[in-house]
Design a protein around this nucleic acid. Sequence first.
DNA 1: CAAACAAGCATTTTT
DNA 2: TGCTTGTTTG
Length: 921
Amino acid sequence: MQQDPDLIARTANELVGDLNPQQAEAVQYRGPALLIGAGAGSGKTRVLTRRIAYILSQFGAWPSQILAITFTNKAAAEMRERLSALIGPVAERMWVSTFHSACVRILRRDGKSIGLDSGFSIYDTADCERLVKLIAADLNIDVKRYTPRAILSRISDYKNNLEGWQDKLREQAPDYRPGQRGYQIGNPGNAEALYAIVYAEYQHRLAAANAVDFDDLIGRTVELLRRDPAVADYYRHKFRYILVDEYQDTNHAQYVLIRELAGVDAAKGAPAPANMPYAGREGQAWITVVGDSDQSIYAFRGADIRNIQDFEQDFPNAKTIMLEQNYRSTQTILDAANAVIAHNEGRKPKKLWTALGKGEPIVGYAADNAQQEAAWIAGEIARLHGEENIGYSDMAIMYRANAQSRSLEEALINAGLPYQLVGGTRFYERREIKDAIAYLQGIVNPADDVNMRRILNVPKRGLGARAEAIVAGYAETNAIPFYAAIERLDSIEGVPTRTANQLRAFRDLMDGLRKFAADPANRPSDIVAEVLSKSGLLDELKKSEDPQDASRVENLSQLQSVAAEFEQNTPDATLAGFLETTALVADSDQLPGEGEDSGKVTLMTLHTAKGLEYPVVFLTGMEQGTFPHSRAMEDASELSEERRLAYVGITRAKRRLYVTRAAVRAQWGQANEMMPSQFLDEIPDGLIDWKRREAGVERMRANWSNGGFDDDEFGGWGDDDFGGTTYGGSAYGSGSRGGSYGSSSSYGSYGSTGSTYGSSSYGSSYGSSDSGYGSSYGSGTRRFGANAGSRSRSGSGTGSRSGSSSNGRSGYGSRSYGSSGSSYGYGSGSGSSSRSGRVTTRRVAPKAAGSSSAAGSAGTPRDNGLNIADFHVGDRITHDMYGLGTIVDTLDKGPKSVITVDFGSAGTKRLMLNRAPIEKL
DNA sequence: CAAACAAGCATTTTT
DNA sequence: TGCTTGTTTG
């Protein structure tokens, strides 16, 4: 049955002999619909690839009959690789791809029947935003009230739910005709109508530009399958086995797409027989979906968890097989994960277990601030590498949001540790790259107005807003694309001669490039080179003085390399094909594949980390407001999603898990005091070995609280304990590893440069090491150092608490985070019952140490010599930053006296009298 | 029309 | 704090 020389036939025993019973059952199951509930680390990919091999060799299916869908290109590549190893080179020819690339392939081939020319452009988020802005300008929409982002997110919702613009328009604004001119919305009371109109107009212009956005790739493919029976038949006949990975992250459109491709509803007349040995050539294709509802973390982008929850109702004769044995992590890690996820309501109980044994405890660390958190992690990584011989590439640092990567990077640079950062501003989103791509897109698809208008004046060639408006007006009047108007510029009236000349030059440029691209002898990388030089993009950047532009030149040359690489890997590489790969890359795609050792520590967001595993994982920023993210804490369902994200993060770790937090985190240049994450409370206390349980500030706070002073917004009065003693001393130093840690090479310099952490010694040594980071980092540290200061407060009882905390858990209940704990009622996880109205992140350091003081003497004690006796309620003062204010309260604490000042619009602040930059009037 | 400057806003997470 | 956007001036 297998004449295909590229296909290695496998016996059933080869495919299931080494699997556990549930895995084996999943691989071999015969039936129209199978849900594999695959817990984290349960061998999901293995089962999926084995099942594909099994279908080929035991069901007798052709490779071309299989469609395997993943969410990222990397996952697809990995699956393909594993398949190759299992069944041979035939894997290279199979449809193993992401939803999006599978749809592109279908639309390129068959999109004509819904009006898509095969050279269509794929707009990324930035392109879409430009388009919405153009529309908003034309319709006179107030973009302050309706931001393009908000409009787009609404449009995305519509598309994810397959709500067409025609229906929306009919419901909300039946008199609007897409493409009509001079329509002014202004500010309608009816927001829904506005959304409907913009949606319709947006689709109209996408169609005119022969372009689609990400969501359209799915939605328009569904539309194609529904509208064109011949096309639908073709694919239903072709794909007899459809397998979908990460099914919990599918949205409604993707769900329908699968149904349509499988012909579930078309086959209704002949219900899927339950006892067929294989799918056969007719009727409904067989569907296998794999997923874990506890790892659904993309609801914000439309993923509908019900797809997986309701699978058995949705597909006739469906079968569910659960995989709960974990082969990845230690029992300790799984216990933590299980405990956390158990706090989510309305989920099917599921308990991962492992045969790997208990393993080491989770290590916890509470830092004073993000910089210290990062430095501690860097030190720990150096130690693990040096003492335990753990490779850098076996360690990963994860965080909730990309912005958190900065301090971590800085610490790693400072410690001289190799790292790679995944995500952040993506290569293809960089301005210069987008510019170059826009040229390429314009060559391939001249109707692409968004990209044409983007490059009209890039590089500067004297074609500004005015010229653009003239051309756009003509194009609109004549209902032709923007570029077509330029080609006809001789018939446009009222074009200044200069502008006309420039437009002609632009037209000649584009025509020349297009001719160049049309020559089959020129490959994509040649075209990229031609575009870069002829357009003047490269010249402009090379001439520039801006140091940033040097790296832009680098990036552009890298783009050319990418194109060259693409040619290497693709038999007949076309420019359009190249553009496609650039449009659909994901962050995780940059990660090295299996078996490649980067030799570097990996930094990435928790979202990016899904599907990956590392022997050592650092989960950072475990604070209320950071993780869970502040915008997700109010809403029960969003909080559940955060918790699933925590579950994903914990289960990435194979052997060792670290959880760290910072008591103070600076964001937007403001220091905020952060409460420990509720997820930390949800991990059973006995599983965590706290190397440092409380940050310095928290300990002090606890001690002062009985003095009745526990409120916010005073200039931090950290002292030497804050940095020196606490960090190098009791909490850390007394741990068994203190000595070796301090003496490890990369870290040693740090320890030796100064006794205090937050103050100048660190900032300056860093600042001098790298000019690029120096300014932002150095100043940030200095500012904090100035605030936290080095006023000595020695002796005031850091006693019992610090002692016991450094010894670990004893004596600490899971809720005893200092005195303030009880006032933060986020209730230990039981749903929405107790939601405190209190904000959990608070500003602790006023912007006080304004530019003047911060710039000067970093870390020196600066007593302004003011005396509390001179200040009374009602007195007027000025503050360097807040301006005029009136004293509303004073608190005499000697040198630590505090005044409360009402600054009117700037708010009411509590200020440390002797440190605040104020003047009495 | 471009360059320089000021103001306002921003951070979830991504195919 | 840092970036993007808008405004002003030459």
